[in-house]
Design a protein around this nucleic acid. Structure first.
Lengths: 263, 263
DNA sequence: TTGCTCCTCACGTCACGTGAGGTGGC
DNA sequence: TTGCTCCTCACGTCACGTGAGGTGGC
């Protein structure tokens, strides 16, 4: 007769594992000595070895139970199923490796390479880090919501940066991050921005940005809260007939008359 | 501002997952409405998308936390580590597939093909299923304890079966399973077995069976309990100067004189 | 008033690991 | 008498799923 640790040793498992198999009914509880020790015979060793053979092959314990009592055909069918599960799991992990590799390649989390390149260009133009962070957030959401429009949008952004006025705007905005909310120069920024917007509208460049309305509102809110300048700038633009920031739009005349109504 | 389900939808996760991330501190708890509803802004969406990007790539949440705050070098190092973990896991699963395939090939659990073949030969000789089951148990333990001696032992067993006397013995034993414990023919079995044993001893065929003593005792106990014939047969052999069953040995004369002492 | 969403516990999953606290066996 | 093994709870792991029971919002 064997003690639990002798049994465990013969089958190459831990004592706790043996108790666990009793608990879940995989291995029947054996007789006990007067002092409560479990005593095992050869059938327990054999059963435990069979259990471990299946479990070591990656069979979940619930299925081990079934397979131990299965006839040859059910057994073969069970084995085929388990092999299919293993194949699926391996494919899943290989897919994970591909994603991990993509993360390592783009230096920034949840952003495709094209966006990373664009943000790099902004930085190299001297745009302030806080402003770049705002842009980055917007692109993370675009990439999550409409991944297929990202590259086209980025290409358009690059084209815009070929315009010296646009570069000037970004430099301006970048300095502005540290201004106070009542700095008179904010009006100059709004005027410059308005000029660029009108030019874009006349060139027919109304771009679908891949964001839905609530997200646009959220990003605007983020801009407003990022600095007093953001809030003031959006107010000034609003007074001049423009709405929003993340997606700037001309407010139609009749809507403009409704004025400061809140939604 | 977003509700929790809107946030979850934007990031493609469940509401419960968002609450879980709050619970473990991955995502900061946001402000609440008067009625206790959580309200989220754009930064929460961005953070949640980043969390999912890493988690979808198989990064454990504990590491996600670290990576979100890591600099570029730590990030790269973390990604390398995770990729190594994934590779190791894939190798493990592929090893599992090999084992599963081995199980499917041998039709019997925890037994190499050679043993399966030998047991098949016993059955084809008309040996009773219960007796084959006893043999099978012994081989499962041998295969677990000393896998490298199995094939050699099986080869020797096959050679033994080429002896017509040995085949006769197995047939005899096979019938005996249903006898009562006081059947006089049990003595005939013992005499036949003794003849074969003496022949084997004289031929110098003392075989190392790959089992250790406690296991041999267990298997003997299993034999004794399998039928009244088993118990009686071992008693008769013992009275004629032999010990055990799974591993039959001649008892030295002086030990024999000590007689019925129990250990 | 009726669904719908939200809230907070809290147990369940999977296969044990890891103490805690106590007792028999050599 | 001193370790060593055994015993039974019972919580912890991992990333949530899944009710239970209750309440605000349209």
């Amino acid at each position: 007769m064997l003690t639990i640790s002798q049994l465990a040793t013969y089958a190459g498992v831990t004592v706790r594992a043996v108790r666990h198999y009793h608990h879940v009914g995989l291995l029947p509880e054996p007789a006990r000595t007067a002092s409560g020790y479990r005593t095992y015979d050869a059938t327990a060793v054999i059963r435990l070895i069979q259990i471990r053979t299946l479990a070591d092959a990656g069979v979940p314990l619930g299925r081990v139970q079934e397979l131990l009592y299965a006839g040859p055909e059910e057994f073969a069918a069970g084995v085929r199923q388990i092999d299919a599960d293993l194949r699926a799991e391996i494919r899943r992990l290989q897919e994970n490796r591909r994603r991990i590799a993509a993360l390592a390649a783009g230096d920034s989390l949840a952003l495709p390479a094209s966006v990373v390149g664009y943000l790099g260009r902004l930085r190299s133009l001297g745009v302030d880090g806080r402003y770049v962070a705002l842009e980055r957030g917007a692109w993370i959401m675009i990439a999550a919501q409409a991944p297929d429009v990202v590259d086209a949008s980025i290409a358009k952004k690059h084209a815009e940066l070929d315009d010296p006025d646009m570069v000037a705007l970004y430099r301006f905005l970048s300095e502005a991050v540290q201004w106070s909310g009542d700095d008179p120069r904010i009006v100059d920024i709004a005027i410059l921005l308005e000029r660029l917007m009108i030019r874009a509208v006349e060139a027919g460049e109304a771009d679908a940005d891949g964001l839905d309305d609530p997200i646009v509102d959220l990003l605007d809110a983020m801009t407003v809260e990022s600095s007093p300048v953001g809030r003031r700038l959006i107010e000034i633009l609003q007074s001049r007939g423009w709405k929003g920031w993340t997606r700037i739009e001309r407010v139609p005349v009749h809507a403009q008359e409704v004025g400061e109504r809140t939604g």
